[in-house]
Write a protein that binds this DNA or RNA. Structure first.
Length: 320
DNA sequence: AATACTTGCAACCGCAACCTT
DNA sequence: AAAGGTTGCGGTTGCAAGTAT
């Protein structure tokens, strides 16, 4: 460990930083093959690498180690991450222990880039109960669908444990406190909904058995929505969700809420609604008049369910 | 085609816990 | 027991690649 043990002890000022080169990787792999893992500072000094022990350790564990799995996380792994994070929070290394071949860094990146993005789109704090509800009600069922019939035991979750379920509501903890103004309140004139592409040819807001209390049991085609200037939709994300913004004044029967989520469908992401749109639609005005009645009718059902949900949860007073 | 913007991920940093002497 | 060194964790940053305008 000392300067006199035969190691190449270079001036610390020459330590390299930044991306690793192929030569450095080769050197590190070769050294570990000969001497094994651990003792990272010694490794750094004696391998000829002008890196800190910390940097060597990180490169090995996160990238070079043979059992590190590359490629996208499977739906099973994603479910596991969501579930374990809801249990343990940001304990990345602990979570990683349950996903063989995946590193804490990878899981942390997944959470930050995918999951927190979802929270931002929903305008919900990623650590809030409300967001955990959304995860359980929206993503987990979708991921399970992607997994098909081969549900792994670890991911054998009961979607009906969704906190949005009426039964669960009655039995479980008191309603969560109203979210802070920034988390959930929209402009007084708009309602936001999360919708999923359900058919690749359009968008559909669907009833879901998993989250039946929070949505209408009817489904409704909204593939023509983009042709209506009153509505806007965000670009669908990696999970296929997009945010619809709908003017309050289009809602019949005085039903109005400030935030809604829980509209659940199936299928892969597709082009933004504004890009492909409905198949046989004419001018925006004509489209709306043609399909308007049935759409609004079902939409109202859906919103009523959401409205009821918030009332049950004691959140009604965060309406304007 | 060029530029601006967004996204995903590898790598770094600070800190705390653990280990060795 | 204490001090110094090492390791591991979680948060953050920087950059290359991809996408939108």
């Amino acid at each position: 460990m000392s300067a006199g043990n035969g190691c190449k002890c270079d001036d610390e000022a020459e330590l390299r930083r930044g991306p690793w080169t192929l030569e450095e990787d080769t050197l590190l792999i070769h050294y570990i093959a000969c001497h094994g893992e651990g003792r990272w500072n010694l490794l750094a000094r004696c391998s000829g690498l002008k890196r800190t022990g910390k940097s060597c350790r990180l490169r090995w564990l996160n990238y070079l180690k043979p059992d590190v799995k590359r490629g996208n996380l499977t739906p099973e792994e994603q479910i596991l991450i969501l579930e374990l994070h809801s249990k343990w929070g940001n304990r990345w290394s602990r979570i990683a222990q349950h996903l063989p071949g995946r590193t804490d860094n990878e899981i942390k990146n997944y959470w930050r880039t995918r999951v927190q993005k979802q929270a931002r789109q929903l305008k919900i704090d990623a650590n809030s109960t409300m967001f955990r509800d959304a995860v359980r009600c929206l993503w987990m069922p979708r991921l399970m669908e992607k997994m098909g019939p081969s549900l792994s035991p670890a991911a054998n979750l009961n979607p009906n444990s969704c906190l949005l379920d009426h039964g669960a509501l009655q039995l479980s903890t008191p309603p969560p406190p109203p979210p802070p103004p920034a988390a959930g309140l929209l402009s007084p004139d708009l309602v936001q909904l999360v919708a999923y592409d359900n058919s690749r040819s359009g968008y559909e807001l669907l009833g879901s058995e998993n989250c039946s209390p929070c949505i209408s049991s009817d489904s409704m085609a909204v593939s023509q929505l983009p042709s209506m200037p009153e509505f806007s939709a965000s670009t669908p994300d990696a999970f296929g969700s997009c945010i619809l913004q709908v003017p309050h004044n289009l809602l019949p029967g005085g039903h109005h809420i400030n935030n809604a989520y829980g509209l659940h469908g199936l299928g892969a992401p597709a082009a933004p609604m504004s890009a492909s749109g409905g198949s046989s639609v004419g001018s925006p005005a004509a489209d709306y008049s043609v399909m308007g009645n049935s759409f609004v009718e079902n939409f109202a059902d859906c919103l009523w369910s959401m409205d009821e949900l918030w009332r049950v949860r004691g959140l009604h007073d965060w309406e304007n």
